[in-house]
Design a protein around this nucleic acid. Structure first.
Lengths: 177, 177
DNA sequence: ACCAACATGTAAGAAGTTACATGATTTA
DNA sequence: TAAATCATGTAACTTCTTACATGTTGGT
């Protein structure tokens, strides 16, 4: 599948970046649908370079600190463009909370409700955070840039969290009556 | 995290099962939130037995076919009951489609719309399948058994797919105007 | 001077996928 | 008698996490 590969290539298509900057982008822009630790990113960049998908030059920050600035090659671009139109089957995300809920008849009603209410609190907190972020996207008109994709992703994340919260509230309601 | 472990222990708490039956349960009951191939289940059962969480007896089907029927031990039950009330941080599911969409400004409008419309078709198909399954749960009253958890999980799955579809439709609409 | 952020890597192990490998039983 | 399902495993590999390991730079 090599999805991490394409996440990295997609980022490098925007601009040249170091491994550290890529790591930062994962935390900022991709966090609602992908993530990777630096311990996965650095070896992947090494592999990508060996495969001829990326190249790098070394830049110096300050006096001695070396930074490897990666760029995507023609070969990398071709590979990325083949991947992005690929038609893949959808897969259901794993969900540890749902796993717990499925087996929650092993708990008494009180503990079962606590389990769900705790989960609800967390998702409500996340939803509020996402809604605050959404305020940045007031006047979006340009549909051809990465900012618009950001906007659609965030909208999807808000909808996803709203639904998760509604579902949990419905579960609580059903157990209470 | 050992989530597969607890998925298996949870199933064995209901009734004694063979690896093959556990595999079948993953496909039938747990499919909306967890899954594992038999190549992961068999070694995990072996490990669980070594750890004293499960035991097995060998049964013969037909003339010679051996079946290992696993049961959960007291130690396994204790461990499971500690896990189910554990308070874990929520994590965002990875989503390859969202990854593609995020980078879809690299496609022209026509291909971008095709990408989203294909995804919509798949999620609509899945939603219809889930709604058909929901018809089985007409008169649910008993809130203390595993069937009720099944019902809540399925409700959550329907809501999740409905929202995914709404989001995709909204994306299409925004790109078309 | 200290701390947060910048910067890059490796090692060990857990989790998950794909393929290899085999054979029995049931149903059409 | 052929195909689907039952039944159990291993091997090689990819993916991902946690921990180890080190050092620089910029701001207060």
């Amino acid at each position: 599948m090599r999805n991490l590969k394409y996440a990295i290539l997609g980022l490098l298509l925007e601009k040249n970046m170091s491994g550290y900057e890529i790591k930062t982008e994962f935390e900022k822009s991709l966090t609602e649908f992908w993530y990777a630790k630096h311990s996965q990113i650095y070896p992947e960049l090494k592999k990508l370079t060996e495969e001829g998908m990326t190249e790098f030059i070394t830049e110096i920050t300050g006096n001695v600190l070396e930074k490897k600035v990666y760029s995507i090659t023609e070969k990398g671009k071709e590979d990325f463009m083949n991947w992005i139109i690929m038609d893949e089957d959808i897969s259901t995300p794993k969900d540890v909370f749902r796993l717990r809920l499925f087996f929650s008849h092993n708990l008494d009603l009180e503990n079962r409700l606590e389990l769900i209410e705790n989960q609800l609190k967390k998702h409500e907190k996340k939803l509020n955070k996402l809604k605050k972020e959404q305020e940045k996207f007031k006047n979006i008109t340009e549909k051809n840039n990465i900012i618009f994709a950001d906007y659609l992703i965030l909208m999807g994340a808000v909808m996803r969290e709203e639904t998760y919260c509604s579902w949990l509230k419905k579960c609580i309601e059903l157990y209470k009556h």
